[in-house]
Design a protein around this nucleic acid. Structure first.
Lengths: 127, 127
DNA sequence: GTACATTACATGCATCCGCATCTAATGCAA
DNA sequence: TTGCATTAGATGCGGATGCATGTAATGTAC
């Protein structure tokens, strides 16, 4: 049925708006981080090795240019380091600094708390 | 479980990004409409009577200021009309023009097609 | 090696968004 | 009535995004 998709889409839209708004406010006020910034830190924290910018781009839902700027901001804040890639000198590696890891760890509970609040009574996907 | 929320959130994030991107491109290319513009037209088309800006604001996931500007754009394009409210002269009514109704009708199939493509194999919410 | 296509990332630009604020109208209390 | 708080909507502003493009490195064909 056509209408079913519309209902699902509206639900996605509503949850996205609500969650994003809360994340932006909570992470911003309490940790000085934007939602995109946290997202990048979170992905970096989930990997041992350094990540290519390109690999990050696949995991975060940002355009290549937006990601480039988020990483630039994070570097200016001292939360990540950018390094040249040996094997392909066009590439750029990114990794967390100690402070980056600390800030991420501090912000994690806030992030999870927001998700818990929004999705507490959420319809859980079947599969 | 904490992690379950994260998985759901990532799914919302992915679907939102994918759908928004496709909607923006398809609606933009084929009908000269942005996703927000279509959203407003769609809500207006779903109601008989005129809507207050404030009522629209509750249905669309935009800030009051963003909605104000979307409606301004739509009016400049001749797709909606803004009219003063008799009972409360602070209020503003919005309604579709004939062209607005036509453009919405033309764009609807495109919109639904995108949703169908993205949510075709989507995990349907339980309740 | 030379020439051209492609890739990885950076950046100029236009657009859109949310927040804070402004204006005008309304409501309410004294 | 006057005076103040509240509300509806518009707007200035800063910031983030995506698209198109630029730059430099790599790959490929000849």
């Amino acid at each position: 049925m056509d209408e079913a998709f519309v209902v699902v889409w509206h639900d996605v839209l509503a949850k996205h708006a609500r969650t994003m708004c809360m994340l932006e406010r909570e992470l911003g006020d309490k940790h000085g981080l934007g939602a995109s910034e946290f997202e990048v830190l979170d992905r970096l924290a989930g990997h041992e090795r350094k990540l290519r910018l390109q690999e990050l781009c696949d995991e975060v839902h940002l355009s290549q240019s937006a990601l480039s700027r988020v990483v630039a901001r994070l570097e200016k804040s001292g939360l990540v380091l950018r390094g040249a890639c040996d094997v392909d000198r066009r590439g750029v590696f990114v990794c967390l600094t100690d402070e980056g890891r600390t800030r991420h760890a501090a912000a994690l509970p806030t992030h999870r708390a927001v998700l818990a609040e929004v999705f507490a009574d959420a319809p859980v996907p079947v599969a």
